[in-house]
Design a protein around this nucleic acid. Sequence first.
DNA 1: AAATATATTATGTGCATACATAATAGCAAT
DNA 2: ATTGCTATTATGTATGCACATAATATATTT
Lengths: 230, 230
Amino acid sequence: MTKKSHDTVRLSMQERIETGEWALGALIPGEVELAAEYGCARTTINRALQALANNGMLIRKRKGGTRVCEMPVRQAKFAIPIVREQVEATGNKYSHKVLSSILKAPPAPVISRLNLHPKDKAFYLETVHLADNRPFAYEERWVNLKAVPTILTAPLSEISANEWLVKSVPFSSGDVVFSAINADQKIANSIEATLGTAIFVVERTTWYKKEFITTLKLFYKEGFQLYTRL
Amino acid sequence: MTKKSHDTVRLSMQERIETGEWALGALIPGEVELAAEYGCARTTINRALQALANNGMLIRKRKGGTRVCEMPVRQAKFAIPIVREQVEATGNKYSHKVLSSILKAPPAPVISRLNLHPKDKAFYLETVHLADNRPFAYEERWVNLKAVPTILTAPLSEISANEWLVKSVPFSSGDVVFSAINADQKIANSIEATLGTAIFVVERTTWYKKEFITTLKLFYKEGFQLYTRL
DNA sequence: AAATATATTATGTGCATACATAATAGCAAT
DNA sequence: ATTGCTATTATGTATGCACATAATATATTT
């Protein structure tokens, strides 16, 4: 009992929420009261309550007190998919092959997504990711050279553009869109799928401090599943 | 300077990581040293560092000190999709229609997923979610009656099973799988799609304290996209 | 009654202090 | 060299205290 009291308190409170002792939307006792009940300092209670509030289980207001969140929004966290790890997680050997890499003017949607001027060129890469030498995913990527000019000299046949960028611009932010499309001829060829097969698609755009780095589409081989836990 | 110092400190440190002043994998100064540098108490530094560690940017070890995470895993958070909110977010009016609801013995995969005995029956629901009276998603759901017997008396034509369950078993946990399939005849009919169209699928299983509540598959109308931010 | 000022209250934050704990480094004994 | 003890060190946790801040309730004024 002499250890990790804030943890114990937090878990206890979480249970009180989950069991409904503290009902949805209900006002729970104040910090001082809880401190007395649990026999610890208000600081400790505060820490536990803030953690639960971060978690979305509680909503806290000055003076108004703390209440259980009315519309509980469970949020899932998942790691941004790095293809090599996805492959290795299945126990297969990862490799990749660069199909093409050229400098050219991107189409309009990419220009706007990377915030480029209409005449700017960008670096375009087509890559196939392989699991035990069989196609796993096909990637189309645009890189903003103004942000990462050094990628032109990167050894992209050894290290994938994805990983090279992660190491060069480590803590960028971005957005991700998941969707499903029917394979067109190009995709079908790249991952050895039948024309029209349902393909899981991930589009990702990343930037670093308002400067856009890269945007890409990943087309996964049929049967691919993305797993997450809440 | 008299306000939210832990916040300021945290943001400052985050910047030092992002700009590479504290490089990937590098050991950063100890708490006392940082406290001296920032001119605040060690407690405040500790709070900021712990927040960044929670975020996955730092890795902390007793004695070993704190270092920048070598393999930065950006993690996305997203709210577990509640169909009604997805529809309303697009500015459309939500409604739903229950196609069928019966008590019957589930197929083997569902039995194992819901941890049922082979002869147990479960509650099976087919629902279509509508946006402005046009199909938006088709849902197949199994509910474990041992866990939530009262669902049999719930007014499921007014409130969707999803929302009813969220309110009854508010803080359950679960897992989610995303994938893509080609529409079969049943799905195609339900959401007015063409046979073979690529369909975005979400499978979700939720439980509460080791007891399984429900498992469901959601088939979204073609063109659906799930958006997330890192 | 409506508008304004004031007191009250619950949470938010920062600090100094004390002790706990895990992991390492260094030393000693075999 | 290997093993095992011990000291050191950086982080982890808990507490008491003081003051800040936001939101509400109450009293006061017009």
